[in-house]
Amino acid sequence: MTLSPTTPPRRDLLVLVPARDEEASILQVLQGCARALPGAPILVVDDGSRDATARLARQAGARVLSHTFGMGYGAALQTGYLYALRKGFSLVVQLDADGQHDPADLPRLVEPILEGRADVTLGSRFLGKESPRISFPRKMGILFFRTLASLGLGGKGFTDPTSGYQALGRKALELLARGHFPEDYPDADVLLFLARSGCRILEVPVTMHPRTSGASMHGGIRSLYYVYKMSLSLALTPIRPKKRRRTG
């Protein structure tokens, strides 16, 4: 089964775009999403933007949820998951609003879940033919977390555990929407948590562009904090209490 423009739109599929101060790139990303998955509703979670991001997104026809103040990338994602569950969506595909993730890859992420081959798909820039140009420290960081995550998974590793380009089925959504979800940098630790909770995670090759606007989450002192936080979180994920159910 393939998703092509001729396929009737699926009403249980939500495209989730967390955004903060991304007025320069948001329209392009939304147009790309509409081309790749025609008819699929798009939700922009505006994480306390101070620019026109929310207005532009709404004018472009997206649904927009606005945080009163910025709380971080992870919190924006989780708001999207909560919305998806409340509105009865069973599949969420998420991509960044800064233009790094190519919307043309959306169907590729969605298909394995629709076909029941996976509960979570992870867009990997390293599975593709072209290897992306990324900075040396970033490469080291990815390698580091790849190793850590694969240790936690008993050797079954991912090529790109820091990728935010993902699709989540209902099982994963429920796991992440209720209970704890990191507000700032969710990635390798969340994957580890999902894998340990019994989700089947599949990596899919995707294209990643250099960012077209905004500031990276990873840079300067924050990347040091990121390394610290992710290491601690990864180390503790296996021994955390299993589930903290709360009504969403």
């Binding site: 949820l65 945080h67 009163t68 709380m71 919190a75 909560l82 919305y83 409340r86 507000e183």
Partner: peptide
């Protein structure tokens, strides 16, 4: 408190929409 503020902010965003 941080977690609770986050949850309130999220619910507020959902309610507003």
């Amino acid at each position: 408190t941080t977690r609770r503020v986050k949850e309130l902010n999220q619910r507020l965003a959902l309610l507003e929409e």
